[in-house]
Write a protein that binds this DNA or RNA. Sequence first.
DNA 1: AATAAAGTCTACTATTTCTATGTACTTTAT
DNA 2: ATAAAGTACATAGAAATAGTAGACTTTATT
Lengths: 142, 142
Amino acid sequence: MLSKKTKYAIKALVVLGKNLSQPPMQIARIAEEEHIPKKFLEQILLDLRNAGYLYSKKGAGGGYSLNKNPEDIYLVDILRITDGPIAMVPCASLKFYHKCEECHDEVTCGIRKAFIDVRDASLKVLSETSIADIIEREKLPA
Amino acid sequence: MLSKKTKYAIKALVVLGKNLSQPPMQIARIAEEEHIPKKFLEQILLDLRNAGYLYSKKGAGGGYSLNKNPEDIYLVDILRITDGPIAMVPCASLKFYHKCEECHDEVTCGIRKAFIDVRDASLKVLSETSIADIIEREKLPA
DNA sequence: AATAAAGTCTACTATTTCTATGTACTTTAT
DNA sequence: ATAAAGTACATAGAAATAGTAGACTTTATT
């Protein structure tokens, strides 16, 4: 399951993606609109900022805006920042690989091989879906 | 991430799948071979049994064996028993669907649509991979 | 019939991870 | 100078996961 952190991150990016040409948007406003606890959202936006996806401005009239085009922000990127690995087992992870403690022999492990396939399948979708796609889909009928 | 419960369940099923023609195997032996806490494994095997995947026999000489062919036990089934939903958001789940609390309008929700795609992708792999496949893969070179 | 070897069932505890909040600090516009 | 914002770090609270305990039932063996 996706953590709330990640869900909030995606929601915030979608909101900011709709706010492109406007002045930066305050945390408090995003929090209110999306029903996200403000202090929690602060942390999340900071993570996204430190990862290069957001631009922030301090002081009066400050706030957050996207630092990339919505077409160039993919779900994989966000998930990896907020939730970590995409794979369901650490030994099948590309970016957060580490050995499973109890594993005898990783090379022949059939479980690992199966979950590498699962990872590849979800990775494909997550790498093809951008914030722009999500915004676009909200305009369409179900 | 896969819970340890699920990982243990898969390992146990694989062991039992290799034990097909032999007499039932004791929990203690599976636990030892796979380095799984025995009492924890008891619960897991019980779940798998109650779901119809294992046959059990009490008393001296008792133990567990598969109640289906390894070819007919798919990863999806196991995950759903031990971990629950395959989807990453409840509103995109087939078997464990429920509304996301904070969701305004599910029908147009772009996040939901994206994660339905993700679910379909992983579901496909998980529904195509059986215990027999895992056993088969362990025999192959990396 | 007695015994020991197994699984069953329910409840509980411990640990970890996730979610959220609190406080003090920095930057910037007015 | 002041107020409006973000930044940083620490901590608390809640929920899920992992693991443990103990009493009970069934069955093979003697």
